[in-house]
Amino acid sequence: MPPAIVAEGLMKKFGDVKALDGMELSVPEGTVFGLLGPNGAGKTTTVRILTTLLTPDAGYATVAGFDVVRDARELRGRIGASGQYAAVDDHLTAAENLEMVGRLYHLGIKRSRRRARELLERFDLVEAGDRPVQGFSGGMRRRLDLAGALVADPPVLFLDEPTTGLDPRARVSLWEVVAELVASGTTVLLTTQYMEEADRLADRIAVVDHGRVIALGTADQLKEQVGGDRIELSLTSAADLEITRRILAPLAVGEPQVDPAAFRVTVPVTGGAAALTTALGHLAAERVTVRDAGLRRPTLDDVFLTLTGHEAATLAGTTKKIKENAR
């Protein structure tokens, strides 16, 4: 089966800012592909090109077998897109919003109406369905926007940071909806800043930085690459830092990081709790006093630090500029 989404060598510049610099993707049909990266990495630009909103400066891409530039018109009937800014009409009711989208997909009056009702039910919006969207919460708006993307039952769905800005409960409920969709065979391309989200939803993840893919694999593979977990140790004296680093180096996947100001040592490990027990055993044997010890999952920052040598947060500055240009 040919891949549902293919992108090769995509380039896009906004003024002087290179938003995409050779973006490559290949997403098999019926799978979820996560684009993981900080703000300004080029995720949204990639989605905008794949959904025909932007044309690339160079490179090419196909979605569901259609060229995103040449066959834009035909392609639009086969994709659904839901963005970070829920594009719903405040003065219209939820049902009217969905019906309008149905009409614009040319489903006809009856089918548009029926489809709107089905989707309201599925997205738990029946009660609010006939109220203007104005009074909706952020989570409800996002669900409605996603429902709008599904009106024509598209085989390929694009979700651009679907849960950014949502509270934890709304986030989990949106995840459940996406999981159901995937179970029914839809191909999904999802962008996110959250490792946890990519982990939970995506079959394969591409880590994106500076407009290109810097790492690719399943969530587990990526975590292996950056070390599955992090042991974080707070010590009582600076003198112990170096000893600790030396003792724990053999356990580490990659290099332990030392933060002298906070008396903290962070060690990427595999093997979870067992690794923590081993580490504490070694330290006790060497009489190192540990004030606090913990095991945590890698964050996007860890992935970045490991893969690029710079922290995700430092990219935030360049983001604003790109976003402004992209608007």
Binding site: T51, L53, E74, R76, G83, A87, L104
Partner: peptide, 13 residues
């Protein structure tokens, strides 16, 4: 501003 045109542009209208 609200991205409604973006949605319109991804539709086959």
């Amino acid at each position: 501003q609200k991205g409604i045109f973006d949605r319109f542009r991804t539709l086959p209208m």
